[in-house]
């Protein structure tokens, strides 16, 4: 549904960001007049150098930047859910209690939704475990379940798989794609991994100097998988890497 050719879609924008400015302390703006629109059900991935303001943008959308100076317009749906890089489960609450924390439905219904969400991420039967007893990947799946249990209209994710190993990461990609097909929220995901961005997103944007420096639609994913035809994938990859700059810090070279 979000596969309009090129440019910004004008129909049913779920997220509208206009002229967003954010700066910490007295320094220059981290975000400097940024514009962004995300259509309903669209998956947008943000790339950008370390310190380019990706997390700042995400936090602005999540409304978590109470004390950060700035201006601009941010419109998001009512029901927003955030997946953090760390799974951010309350260590003193059992898995199911974590999943239903803050759920709007009455307790019985919320727990039912929570159980269903845990089953969806393959963790049925672990409802009564403590977060400490789960592996990193399992914890991140719980945090996905927590987000999905409240059927968000917008899912914000800041390097959600950044701490996971390559294999677990691939499994999580499959899981996420599967979940999104069923729940279809709009998604804005920060990642350092160009391939991850291309494989998962409908559109990839590159953040630089406080604005969006480049945005590209990814090869159509409905029907033909991008991996089946590596051609356009490779071109896009090269273009994105170019936009990220040749002086990309060496610490990240290996993930690119």
């Amino acid at each position: 549904m979000a596969a309009h050719a090129g440019g910004l879609s004008t129909t049913a924008a779920a997220v509208v960001v206009r002229d967003l400015v954010r700066s910490y302390g007295t320094g220059a703006g981290v975000l400097d007049g940024l514009d962004l629109e995300i259509a309903a059900g669209e998956f947008v991935a943000i790339l950008g150098r370390s310190g380019s303001g990706k997390s700042t943008l995400l936090r602005a959308l999540a409304g978590l930047d109470h004390d950060v100076r700035g201006s601009g317009r941010v419109e998001v749906p009512r029901n927003v859910s955030v997946v953090f890089q760390d799974s951010r489960l309350l260590p003193w609450a059992r898995v199911l209690d974590n999943v239903v924390l803050g759920h709007e439905a009455p307790p019985a219904r919320a727990r039912e939704a929570g159980r269903a969400a845990l089953a969806e991420v393959g963790l049925a039967g672990r409802e009564r475990a403590w977060p400490n007893e789960l592996s990193g990947g399992e914890q991140q799946r719980v945090s996905l379940a927590r987000s999905l249990a409240r059927s968000p209209e917008l899912l914000l994710a800041d390097e959600p798989f950044g701490a996971l190993d390559a294999l677990t990461r691939l499994r999580m990609h499959d899981l996420l794609r599967d979940l999104l097909r069923r729940h279809h929220p709009s998604v804005l995901m920060v990642t350092h991994d160009v391939d991850e961005a291309i494989v998962l997103a409908d559109r990839v944007v590159v953040l630089d100097a406080g604005r969006i420096a480049l945005e590209r639609r990814t090869p159509a994913r409905d029907g033909s998988r991008p991996t089946a035809d590596p051609g356009p994938h490779r071109t896009l990859r090269a273009e994105l890497l170019e936009a990220l700059g040749p002086d990309t810090d060496p610490a990240r070279k290996d993930t690119l």
Partner: peptide, 16 residues
Amino acid sequence: KRYVELAETLRLDRRR
């Protein structure tokens, strides 16, 4: 602080 942020994104009311 991260748990406070979590509570904010989950829209917990003050009592919860």
